[in-house]
Each structure stands twice: as C-alpha cells, then as structure tokens.
C-alpha cells in the first residue's frame, strides 16, 4: 500500500511543480488576448514583447546589474570564505560568520528598507551616493548575494583537502601564488555555481530593488510587477517562456558537463 503511495505522491508533487510552468508556456502561444481562452496558435506575443521598449530596456538594465553584482559578489564572497576556512584564528570571526549567514534568512523588505535608510543618511552626511539608481541597486545586490556565494564556496573549501596547498606553501610558494595556482582551479566549479546563483538572485530581485532604485532605473522585476498588478497579459507569458527556456538549457548543459567531468 505504502509502496504505491510514494510514487503517486511524488508524481503529483511534480505535476504541482510543473503544471503552472507548462500553462505559462502554452498560453504564451495563444492568439487570444484573454490569457485563458484558447484562440489558436500564434507567436504574436513574442513579437509584441520584443517591440515593448520598456520591457527591453528594463531587461537589458537587469542583465547588466546582475552581471556586475554577481562578479563583485563572487570576489568578495570568495575572500570571506578563504578567511573563514584557511586563515585559522581571526579576530571577529564570529561577527563575520553572523554577517554572512544573516542575509540568507533576512526578509527582503527589511534588507531593502535598511539599505535605503543607510543611503539616505549617507547622502545627507557625505553627499554620496547622490540619489538612488543603478549604483545603489548594485551595492544592495552585491551585499545580499555575496552571502550566498560565500556559503557555496565555503562548503567547497572545507570539503577540500588542503594538503596540496600546504605542501606548496612549505616549498616556498607565496600565499598569493598558492591561491591562484592551486586553490582557484580547484574551487572553480564552486565559483561558477556561486556566480550563477548571485546572477539569478540579482535578476530576480523585486523587493530590494524597489526600495533602492530611483527614477529611470526600473529593473525587469519592477516593470513586470507593475504590469502583473494590473492583471495577466500574454506578453508576460512570452517573457516567462523565454526565461524558462534559457534557464532549462543552461541547467541541462551544466548537468551534462558536470557528469562528463565526474566520469573523467
């Protein structure tokens, strides 16, 4: 009896996960403007999507912000995880650990509000950052995504045997050289995973960006949110389908590459 229950429950679970995604994709090819009434196959919403200048600009801005913030967050997050795993006893270690675990569970509304209030205070005291816009969004995204990068890289570093690194150090290589010649190649998969995670988190963030963005710096989620609030619209379905396509291709490629790597 239970043997049957398990596959059925798991199957229903997967239907629950993928049904809505499937419905998004199907109705993105719907001729009718009414999202849920089938009016024949059409790709016109994709054409409309690419002609929507507001969405295109926002998407481009979001991609740029995500790429820059993910790169900076990867560098900073890697630095922290090196300090926590390879530097031995460091003063303030507990505070550092706290500061990289707290953002993982912090509600976005609080992160957003606190950063905005900081930016306003800083602007009043030092005149920087002047107003809110791309710079403030970048700072906010770097801050919360570096915590995620640090977690990914740290778990790789602590799983890794550091005998090779120590041997190189004993043989007289400088710590910098050891890092770039030995540690970095060994943690490269974790760095890529961390970067991708940071990139996705930045691309997906609505709440924090809404707090710290200014006029003229509407990211893609901000534009989508204001559209979705007014109701369903088929060009958003088209956008969602494109995102799903890109993500699926990316994930499947990554999985195949990792399996090949594992076989070697």
């Amino acid at each position: 009896m239970r043997l049957r229950f398990l596959p059925i429950a798991a199957f229903l679970g997967f239907v629950f996960l993928y049904g809505p995604i499937l419905s998004l994709v199907i109705f993105s090819f719907n001729e009718s403007k009414l999202v849920t009434v089938w009016g024949g196959f059409s790709t016109k919403w994709y054409v409309e999507l690419f002609q929507n200048q507001q969405i295109m600009n926002a998407a481009w801005l979001s991609l740029k912000i995500a790429a820059i913030s993910a790169s900076v967050a990867t560098v900073l997050g890697t630095m922290i995880s090196m300090v926590l795993t390879r530097f031995g006893r460091v003063r303030g270690r507990a505070i550092m650990t706290g500061m990289i675990t707290a953002p993982l569970v912090m509600p976005e509304v609080i992160t957003g509000l606190s950063l905005l209030l900081l930016f306003v205070t800083m602007e009043r005291l030092f005149g920087w950052p002047a107003g809110r816009g791309v710079t403030t969004i970048l700072i906010a995204h770097i801050t919360f995504s570096m915590a995620f990068v640090a977690v990914v890289v740290q778990s790789r570093l602590s799983d890794m045997d550091n005998a090779i690194e120590e041997a190189a150090l004993d043989l007289g290589a400088s710590p910098l050289r050891v890092f770039f010649d030995i540690t970095l190649p060994m943690i490269a998969p974790a760095l890529i995973a961390g970067w991708l995670l940071a990139f996705t988190l930045s691309l997906d963030d609505l709440v924090i960006a809404s707090f710290v963005s200014g006029p003229g710096s509407s990211t893609l989620p901000i534009v989508i949110f204001s559209k979705v609030r007014l109701g369903v619209s088929p060009d958003i379905n088209a956008l969602a389908s494109l995102i799903i396509l890109v993500v699926s291709l990316g994930i499947i490629t990554a999985a195949i590459l990792m399996r090949k790597g594992a076989r070697k």
Partner: peptide
C-alpha cells in the same frame, strides 16, 4: 526561473 513569474503563473 523567476520567482515573480512563478507567482504570476498561478494568477492565470
């Protein structure tokens, strides 16, 4: 994939 768009799917 986007959190916002997964919520949006349920509106439809």
């Amino acid at each position: 994939t986007s959190f916002l768009l997964r919520v949006y799917a349920w509106i439809g």
